[in-house]
């Protein structure tokens, strides 16, 4: 029982991070109909920025701030320089450009930082709380992770639901031409969407780096889990990505806890398959068939 509880707790922490990556993917997909395969590479780059700052100054918080800022800048840059020119071409071209970015960013990162994985520090203790003599798999650092993600999600929901900018961004994503006729600078809202996705990705990178270590290829698996969470959630719904992330996080935690960590990624495959067999367009995706 304690083991189950502990696995659930660990699953929630991981799931929150998967949800964050899923959220970044969903934001971009909703706005530009582009699947950003390069999200993992972008995360890796911004986390390296954080690592460098941490290495030089020793301040975790300054490093976090720099990584987040780098995420904003990188998101903007990628959208403006690489995605905008191919946006009007066939849909898959943007995907290839993203694949090109992965290769390019990975190579650049290996040139600058080498390909050996590095440790990334944590701001709080990793020692689990104990309740009545039982040690839980929930540490102050896990609470920090969960808190950061929850805060980000709430801020995003408020941005989209309560502000004029959020309304404009949603309008631009749903119906670009009508939004332009209503005076929305759709080009700008798309860029802001990418920048925010870059920021969210940067946060996920800093949170996951202590777990998987930091290296050019270290984030591949995590990215795939983020994708899986986004797809389970239906690709279009921020709430869906949170649910998908938590579902995946817990399942993977049980799989690795009870069946062994080698089959974790197969577990992700299975969750995805089962979820999609039940609902082919995700749990929160558009209902059967697209609107015409």
């Amino acid at each position: 029982m304690v083991r189950f509880l502990n696995l659930t707790l660990a699953g929630i922490t991981d799931g929150m991070i998967f949800a964050t990556i899923a959220l970044a993917l969903v934001m971009i997909f909703r706005a530009t109909r582009v699947i950003n395969f390069a999200q993992g590479a972008m995360m890796m780059l911004t986390t390296f920025v954080g690592w460098t700052v941490q290495d030089r100054t020793g301040s975790y918080w300054l490093a976090l701030g720099c990584a987040l800022a780098a995420g904003l800048v990188l998101g903007t840059l990628v959208e403006r320089v690489f995605i905008r020119p191919v946006e009007n071409g066939p849909e898959l071209n943007a995907a290839v450009v993203a694949l090109g970015l992965i290769v390019l960013i990975n190579a650049l990162a290996s040139m600058i930082w080498g390909s050996t994985p590095r440790a990334y520090p944590v701001p709080f203790s990793l020692r689990g709380y104990s309740v009545g003599g039982v040690r839980l798999l929930l540490s102050p650092n896990d609470l920090f992770t969960i808190g950061m993600v929850a805060f980000t999600m709430t801020a995003l929901v408020l941005l989209f639901r309560r502000t004029a900018l959020g309304l404009r961004m949603r309008a631009g994503a749903y119906s670009p031409e009508l939004a332009r006729l209503l005076g929305v600078r759709v080009g700008a809202t798309l860029t802001i969407g990418w920048a925010l996705a870059g920021l969210i990705g940067a946060l996920a990178g800093v949170l996951i780096a202590p777990v998987v270590f930091l290296g050019p290829d270290q984030f591949d698996t995590v990215l795939v889990y983020g994708f899986t969470a986004a797809i389970i959630g239906g690709l279009e719904s921020p709430v869906g990505s949170v649910v998908g992330g938590l579902l995946l996080g817990c399942t993977l935690s049980y799989v690795s806890g009870y069946a062994g960590s080698e089959v974790t990624s197969l577990g992700a495959c299975a969750v995805l398959l089962v979820a999609l067999m039940a609902r082919p367009s995700g749990l929160f995706g558009p209902a059967t068939g697209r609107r015409v």
Binding site: A164, L167, R170, A171, Y174, S175, L178, L182
Partner: peptide
């Protein structure tokens, strides 16, 4: 203000949100 034929509203947004979007110009 240009109202295209057929789809003059953003169907994913609520009535109130559509109206608010109009006032943001």
């Amino acid at each position: 203000a240009h109202l295209p034929s057929g789809q003059g509203v953003i169907v994913e947004l609520t009535v109130a949100e559509n109206l608010r979007l109009g006032s943001l110009i």
